[in-house]
């Protein structure tokens, strides 16, 4: 049973009034991994997260979490199963302190027995914001808010963390700190599904990359495989034909991590 994927998406489609945000998407995530989803703007990454968390209902297809079908379940029930999300634009409970923000995560979230005080403390520790516990959330910097977002999500004792661009807008030091946090979270046994535009971070932290373009999966593999995949380069930088030279100049651009 150990080979059972923690998340399995099966022929998932979502269209908004004829606009196909996601078309026939299938993949499976193994427990304990960090998988990154990359793709140009509008590729369907955020839509995918909205579908997995139940915020949107798919037009077709199924989502399985730990062997159980979760499509069509209300968002809070999916959270009770053990999926948490950290938003791209941090959405803290502004009037509450950092501690209270994280505490709400540990009061709710995954169903089952809980030790609220211990979980809250551990989540703040993992996300490296324990020293900010008494600050009001409204007083945090953008970088700190991202950490709070992650802390609150893992305080739910989730088995799967959906992290939506946790490094966007952070400076290199902050990005390194966030990568470190993600690594520690994975080491604590949480599977991570990451959407991230910051290519160096993605390359560094991911076990596997899924590349979406226009709602379809165009590549799936280890970071180095994907970075050399001509289809991916084309999706990011436009068609390479007829000159072959363009693709060669494009490839290092991805490696070196221009933000896409």
């Amino acid at each position: 049973m150990n080979n059972q994927p923690i998340l399995r998406v099966d022929r998932l489609s979502k269209s908004f009034r004829g606009l196909h945000a996601i078309t026939g998407l299938s993949f499976a995530i193994q427990p304990g991994s960090i998988t990154s989803i990359i793709g140009p703007n509008g590729a369907g990454k955020s839509t995918l997260f909205n579908l997995v968390t139940g915020y949107l209902a798919p037009s077709a297809g199924q989502i399985w979490f730990q062997g159980r079908l979760i499509t069509g379940m209300p968002t809070n029930r999916i959270a009770e199963r053990g999926i948490a999300r950290a938003f791209q634009i941090a959405r803290p409970f502004r009037d509450l302190s950092v501690f209270d923000n994280v505490r709400i995560g540990s009061l709710f979230g995954k169903a089952g027995p809980r030790d609220v005080a211990a979980t809250t403390a551990r989540a703040m520790q993992l996300a490296a914001i324990a020293h900010l516990a008494d600050r009001p959330a409204s007083a945090l910097t953008v970088g700190q808010l991202r950490h709070l977002e992650v802390a609150r999500a893992i305080a739910t004792r989730a088995d799967l963390l959906l992290a939506d661009e946790p490094c966007a807008g952070l400076n290199p030091t902050e990005t390194a700190a966030m990568i470190d946090v993600l690594r520690r979270i994975r080491a604590s046994g949480v599977t991570i599904l990451l959407v991230e535009h910051d290519m160096p971070s993605v390359m560094e932290v991911s076990d596997r990359l899924l590349v979406l373009d226009a709602g379809r999966l165009i590549a799936d593999g280890s970071p180095s495989d994907v970075a050399n995949n001509p289809q991916v380069i084309e999706a990011y930088l436009g068609s390479t034909e007829p000159e072959d030279t363009e693709s060669q100049t494009a490839e290092p651009a991805i490696r070196q991590g221009s933000k896409i």
Binding site: T53, Y55, P74, T75, N76, A79, E80, A84, R85, F87, R91, F93, R94, D95, L96, D100, R103, I104, G105, L107, F108, G109, K110, A111, R152, A153, T156
Partner: peptide
């Protein structure tokens, strides 16, 4: 605590399992 989280941000609260 759940009510407070609803006041602060209802969608996020639901996402956290409230």
């Amino acid at each position: 605590a759940g009510l407070l989280s609803i006041r602060e941000d209802e969608d996020t609260a639901r996402m956290l399992g409230v």
